[in-house]
Amino acid sequence: EPEARKIVEKLINNGLSPEDVKRWAEKNNNPEVKKAAEEYQKR
Rank of each mutant, 00 (worst) to 15 (best):
E38D: 09
V8P: 00
L11N: 01
A25L: 02
W24M: 03
K42N: 12
R43D: 12
E9T: 05
Q41G: 08
A37T: 04
K35P: 01
A4V: 06
E1A: 12
K35F: 09
E3M: 07
Q41F: 12
E9G: 04
D20P: 00
W24F: 02
K22H: 06
A25K: 00
K22E: 07
E3G: 09
P18G: 03
E9D: 07
E39S: 06
P2M: 15
Q41K: 08
N29C: 08
K22I: 15
A25T: 01
K34S: 09
P2I: 15
E26H: 05
E9L: 13
E3A: 10
L11F: 11
I12S: 01
P31Y: 10
K6S: 11
E1V: 11
A25H: 01
V33Y: 03
K10C: 07
E9Q: 11
R23D: 09
A4R: 02
K42L: 13
K27A: 14
V8S: 01
S17A: 05
N14R: 13
E19K: 04
K34Q: 09
K22N: 04
G15W: 02
E1N: 12
N13M: 14
N13T: 09
P31A: 10
A36M: 11
E38G: 03
Y40P: 01
P31C: 05
R23E: 12
N28Q: 07
K27Q: 13
L16M: 14
E19C: 06
N29M: 07
L11E: 01
E9Y: 09
E19I: 05
A37G: 02
K10Q: 14
E26M: 08
N28R: 06
K27E: 14
K22G: 06
K6R: 13
P18F: 15
V33N: 00
W24P: 01
N29F: 07
W24H: 01
S17F: 03
E38S: 05
V21R: 00
Y40H: 05
E38R: 03
V21H: 00
I7K: 03
I12Q: 02
I7W: 10
R23W: 07
V21P: 00
E3W: 13
A37F: 06
R5T: 13
N14L: 15
V33A: 04
P31F: 09
K42E: 10
L11P: 00
K22L: 14
K10A: 14
N29A: 07
E9A: 09
L16Q: 04
G15F: 02
N30E: 12
K42D: 09
L11W: 10
K22P: 00
N29L: 06
K35Q: 10
W24Y: 03
I7H: 04
K42T: 11
A4P: 07
P31W: 11
E19R: 04
Q41Y: 11
A4W: 11
E26G: 02
K10D: 14
V33T: 02
G15M: 03
R43V: 13
S17R: 05
E3I: 07
N14W: 14
R43N: 12
I12E: 02
A25Q: 01
E39G: 05
E32N: 07
R43Q: 14
R43S: 13
K34H: 10
K34P: 02
R5I: 14
N14A: 15
I12A: 01
N14T: 10
V21I: 15
R43K: 13
K27L: 14
E39V: 06
A4D: 03
P18S: 09
S17H: 05
K6E: 13
R43L: 14
W24E: 00
E39D: 10
R23Q: 12
V21M: 03
N13E: 13
Q41A: 12
E3C: 09
W24A: 01
V33C: 02
Y40N: 02
A37K: 00
E3D: 14
N13I: 08
E19T: 06
Y40F: 10
K10V: 11
A36H: 05
E38T: 06
I12D: 00
E26V: 09
N30R: 14
A36W: 12
E3Q: 09
E39R: 06
Y40A: 04
N13G: 13
G15R: 02
N29I: 04
G15T: 03
N13V: 08
P18A: 13
N28D: 03
W24N: 01
Y40E: 03
L11T: 01
K6A: 14
A37Q: 01
N28W: 11
K10Y: 15
S17W: 02
A36K: 03
E9V: 08
A4F: 06
V33K: 00
D20N: 04
L11D: 00
P2R: 15
A25D: 00
P31R: 07
S17K: 05
V21K: 00
A4E: 04
P2F: 15
L11H: 03
E38A: 06
K10E: 15
P2H: 15
L16G: 03
N28H: 13
E39Q: 09
K6I: 11
D20L: 06
N14D: 14
E26C: 00
N28V: 08
A25F: 02
S17V: 02
I12R: 02
E32I: 08
K22Y: 12
N14G: 12
P18M: 12
E9N: 07
E9H: 08
E1C: 08
K42I: 12
Y40K: 01
R43W: 14
R5Y: 15
I12G: 02
A25P: 00
E9M: 11
E38I: 10
G15E: 05
K10W: 15
G15V: 03
P31K: 08
K35A: 10
N14C: 08
R5V: 14
I12W: 03
I7F: 11
E3K: 05
Q41V: 11
Q41D: 08
A36C: 06
S17L: 05
K27P: 00
E32L: 11
Y40I: 06
R5Q: 14
K34W: 15
V33L: 09
K27S: 10
E9R: 10
P2G: 15
K34A: 14
A36D: 02
R5P: 06
I12H: 03
K34F: 15
K34L: 15
E32T: 09
N30D: 07
R5M: 15
